[in-house]
Amino acid sequence: MSSALQKTPSSRSPQSPADAATSTGSTSAIELHAVSKTFGDAGSVPSLRDIELEVAEAEFVAIVGASGCGKSTLLRIVGGLETATDGVVRVRHEDVRGPGPDRGVVFQDYGLFPWLSVRENIAYGPKQRRLPRAEVDEIADRFTEMVGLERVSARFPSELSGGMQQRVAIARVLANDPAVLLMDEPFGALDSLTRLSMQTQLRQLCSDLGCTVLFVTHSVEEAVVLADRVVVMAGGPSHGTAGHIRTVVPVDLGFPRDITEPGFNEIKRVLLAEIFAEQSAQDVA
């Protein structure tokens, strides 16, 4: 399976001259400054307050935190699916205004078009960009192969397993050559073995293509397996405080990562301590 992911057909290199030209000195792919979000009227507790975060080109950042801390909302704001009440949201130095093909979102429930085949789902984005037919075909073939789904390319999503559907969803956004990949608990609905294999494949794919990834999960282990940095979020209206970033923990381990290694477990311990420290502090208060 992972052999299909060994190819490195990247048409985009994150440090290409084009990027350098538009860059204003920093290499941030995603910049969030003083971002706040309040649902409902102005008096209610904000879901997010004063979020400061930068994600570098080709960096893989995971966001962990308890339910309701606003991690999915934050991701959706970067995707343009929600609008920030306040603050600056930039992707490749452009203000985010609504959803767009430069920010590929992978949803937990896939969001595939049920009336399109696997290959047509993958070809959807390039077709929307009105690329010439030959190019659309080439891209569709390349990404279908990249996620190892050539044999089921004519099937419809309802005929596939959850893991396969999610691979279609990943290929579908990668086919748009996005600046950033936004993944909202993408493996949350999969069984643990499929999940493990998907993590390996995703990490390989991202290393090959040099993707910039923002990855929301509530599995601390998944975050440490995949990410270069892990953002710990806390709070949320149901806890009486606004959702905020508690800390950011770098994961200085090589790939592939060994989940039984002491260094791995140490980082996991630190992250869990941060998550639970905030919770017990809230329980006392």
């Binding site: 995707g79 343009g80 699916l81 609504g98 959803p99 767009g100 093909p101 920010r103 590929g104 979102v105 949803f107 429930d109 969001g111 595939l112 078009f113 049920p114 009336w115 959807y124 984005g125 929307q128 960009r129 579908r172 956004v173 748009n176």
Partner: peptide, 27 residues
């Protein structure tokens, strides 16, 4: 709503959202 979001983030807007996503989904 998920299909509308998926269409939007893949670059579908306006009129094409109707013909590419809304109509096929409600057929």
């Amino acid at each position: 709503e998920r299909l509308i979001e998926a269409g939007a983030m893949l670059g579908t807007s306006g009129w094409r959202m109707l013909t590419r996503v809304v109509v096929p989904a409600s057929l």
